[in-house]
Amino acid sequence: MIIAEWKPIPELVSMLKGHKSVLLVGCATCVAECAAGGEREVETLAPLLRMALKTEGVSVEIKRKTIERQCEWEFVEALAGEIEEVDAVLSIACGIGVQALSERFAHLPVYPGVNTTSLAIREQPGLWTARCAACGDCVLGETFGLCPVARCAKSLMNGPCGGTRHNGMCEVDENVECVWNLIYERAKARGELQKLYEVRRAKNWSNSAHGGPKRMLREDLRP
């Protein structure tokens, strides 16, 4: 899923100052799963925002709505009625949702309420960790199903740097496992260590953001 986290509330307050009425919009998909932008978070953030604005001496009406998915036009369309009554939108969906709303309702400012950070998995309750960097050139077949692009702090392709701690954690963050240590362990368990001995040449990054904004076209699916 796409994960995101709340922006600091003072940052939101400074965005909303000067507006009369704002629609706070949640998304019931990825950001709900990561407890940042679903209905529960809308219901918590709305009173917090009202109180924060009040303590700043500002009066802004905060309306609330959560839709199934902010990244699909059919669901976004359901906001058309509420949008009429506000002069700004605060979306706590991922960056895709924020942009879908601002594209559909281009006459209004649509502010991001969260910072979108990663493609991640819920590793444990309350813990989400990155799994994919959308690099456009998947290597998981050669790295035993563990991604060094997303999970190594240096995106190394040829094994661990010298910074693997004695407990197998990463030198950059003691709470993050050295993914190359994990890859090694899995390769060893499968009896396929020799696969890691091959030198992997420089990667082609052009099928990701590095190649310019991604555009995927499927003629067979076009109207």
């Binding site: 094994g159 661990p160 740097c161 010298g162 910074g163 693997t164 240590n181 090694y184 362990e185 260590l193």
Partner: peptide, 15 residues
């Protein structure tokens, strides 16, 4: 550079 004594120790020589 080579860090011979970091884990996984067995892999270091292959690195």
């Amino acid at each position: 550079a080579w860090t011979p004594l970091s884990p996984p120790l067995e892999f270091r020589v292959h690195r």
